Computed example of a mutant assay.
Amino acid sequence: MSEVQAIEKSPGILANYVEITKPRLSIVVVFSSIAGYFLGAENYSWITILLLCIGGYFLVGSSNVFNQIIERDRDALMKRTMNRPIPTGRIAANHAWIYGLVMALTGVYLLFLINAATAFFGALSIVLYAAVYTPLKTRTPLCVFVGAFPGAIPYMLGWVAASGDFGIEPGTLFMLQFFWQFPHFWAIGWMLENDYKAGGFKMLPTGATDRGTAIQIVLYTIWTIMVSLIPAFGVTGDLFMTPWSAALILLLGLWFLYYAIKLYKERSNEVARKLMLVSVSYITLIQIIYVVDKFLR
């Protein structure tokens, strides 16, 4: 391909700036916040929902921008990330810093318009993700544990946006998304082991796609299923579910567990990919069932 053709095929400036926010991931995260909001709200405010959507997207997007700035040299070493806007030079790192900072400050401000607690947890998620989780990725597999904290905040953030405080209900939502992240990200780490190694990232708990990692994936999947069923026992305040919904959630959990066990038995990239896709479907369907159950009671 000639240089002229390459320039013609390269994304536009706006497309590059959208790309570094990782829009698909950011939208999924915002979806979980909205699910948490509908679970926690007694009266629904479309202004609050709009602020939560835009502010939440800005916060997640800025975290992704900061992450890519810090990892730009390592991203250039991996097939999966080498064509991102920053390592290819389509966006200068200093421009990305300004962009990320503006997004972060705007996002925190929009969440502050909802209430102070929502703004606090939103800001905390950026700090944990960009300043703690990202640097740890090249140092220790414990980075996944640290990264699970900011990753679990969005679901509970919606409840906090609705209620204005943190209690047993958003705490339960936090726990569910916290434990779910381990099998989800370890499945990704398994599938992309060689790419991560090329970039110098330590994502798997044992450092390899071995029996020890597979066992931990199974264990965290079981804990995720257990936490998902806690609201059925009436011990989580205003967050509870009917037996019918609990049965559906259990079936989804067994579907999730099936692929975790299958990965333990076969230890293949193909099964790891299926587990990753199932994990995404699982958490999305769980959130939908929680909300639908509330409206059908």
Rank of each mutant, 00 (worst) to 15 (best):
L204H: 00
E270S: 13
L248C: 13
L250G: 12
G158P: 07
P150H: 01
V235N: 00
F233Y: 12
I217A: 09
W244F: 13
V278H: 01
F185P: 12
V278D: 02
I249S: 06
D210W: 04
D238I: 10
V160K: 00
A232F: 11
L275N: 07
W190Y: 05
K197G: 09
V160M: 08
K262H: 14
A272T: 11
S245G: 08
L248S: 11
E169N: 10
G189Y: 05
W190Q: 03
M226L: 14
M156V: 04
Y264I: 06
N194E: 13
S228V: 12
F182C: 01
W255K: 06
L257S: 13
W190M: 05
G164V: 10
D210C: 04
F179C: 08
Y259D: 11
L252Q: 05
T209G: 09
F174N: 07
V278K: 08
W255S: 08
Y282M: 06
V218C: 10
K197M: 08
A187G: 01
A214M: 06
T224G: 04
I188N: 11
A272R: 02
G212V: 03
T213W: 05
L176Y: 01
R211P: 00
M276S: 13
I153H: 00
F166D: 07
N194L: 13
N194I: 10
E270P: 05
Y220R: 02
W159A: 02
